[in-house]
Computed example of a mutant assay.
Amino acid sequence: MGRRGRGVFHCGYHSEKSYGAASYLIVQPEGNILVDRDDVADHKKWSERLSCDRILHAKEVEFSTADVEVKLEGSGPWSLGDDIELIHTPGHTAGSVCLLYKSGKVLFTGDHLGMDESGSLSIMETYNWYSVPMQLNSVRMLLELDFEWILPGHGRKVGFADMEDKNSALEAFLAASRT
């Protein structure tokens, strides 16, 4: 990913248990972060193997995730140090959360926003489990954030030249979504 996105690595394995979701590793001096965007895969095994805490919004907790170490409450944002911010982006689900890696200018979006097969931004409306209007409002919130890469849970990464380019793409997507 060049200078932008430095320290971010695609893990490369897409388990059927997570519907083929992508995982990424953020390498930083304060401690590495494994970004796994689907909570149905082997999160517990990874947590035990790497001796790390799992973080999940409380509205996403179900039987298979009841023992996660950190449950986010409310609407955030939450910080994991100076360089990592968790942003509540409800819509796809009630507890959808994006992770912003500030110095890398990367937004990990999970199922919130990505690129469809035609190369256009998409909220994957077919797989929306909560509220499409709320999800579009959450996309609108992303206009305020400084990032140049979207790394989704499914599909290809999306790169922008700068914040202005990112905002133009998001505004065009939102305008087309109103029709």
Rank of each mutant, 00 (worst) to 15 (best):
M1H: 04
G2V: 15
R3H: 15
R4S: 09
R4K: 11
R4M: 10
G7F: 05
V8P: 01
H10R: 13
C11K: 03
H14K: 05
E16P: 09
K17P: 06
Y19K: 08
A22N: 05
L25C: 12
L25E: 12
Q28W: 03
P29W: 06
E30G: 04
G31F: 08
G31S: 02
N32A: 04
I33R: 02
L34P: 12
V35S: 06
D36C: 11
D38Y: 15
V40D: 05
A41E: 14
D42E: 09
K44L: 15
K45T: 08
E48V: 12
L50N: 13
D53A: 14
R54D: 04
R54P: 03
I55E: 06
K59E: 15
V61T: 09
S64H: 14
S64C: 10
A66D: 12
D67A: 13
E69A: 12
L72V: 03
L72F: 04
E73A: 09
E73H: 06
G74V: 06
P77T: 07
I84Q: 05
E85T: 13
H88I: 11
H88L: 09
T89V: 04
G91T: 01
H92Y: 12
H92L: 10
H92D: 01
T93G: 08
G95K: 08
G95A: 11
G95L: 01
G95R: 10
S96L: 09
S96Y: 02
V97H: 04
V97Q: 06
L100D: 08
Y101A: 12
S103F: 02
K105A: 05
V106K: 00
L107V: 10
L107C: 12
F108S: 07
T109W: 15
G110Q: 14
G110R: 14
D111R: 15
H112M: 09
L113V: 06
G114V: 05
G114S: 11
S120G: 03
S120T: 04
S122Y: 05
S122T: 03
S122K: 12
S122W: 02
I123D: 00
I123C: 06
M124P: 03
M124H: 15
E125D: 08
T126H: 13
T126I: 11
T126R: 14
Y127A: 07
N128E: 02
W129M: 00
Y130T: 02
Y130E: 12
S131C: 14
S131H: 07
V132Q: 10
V132G: 09
P133L: 06
M134Y: 04
L136S: 04
N137Q: 02
S138V: 07
E144S: 02
D146L: 07
F147T: 03
E148Y: 12
I150Q: 09
I150E: 13
P152F: 00
P152I: 02
P152V: 06
R156G: 08
V158H: 03
V158N: 08
G159E: 14
A161R: 15
A161N: 07
M163F: 08
E164N: 04
E164A: 14
D165C: 15
N167C: 04
S168A: 14
S168M: 10
L170T: 01
A172V: 01
A175R: 00
S177H: 10
S177E: 03
R178G: 00
T179I: 07
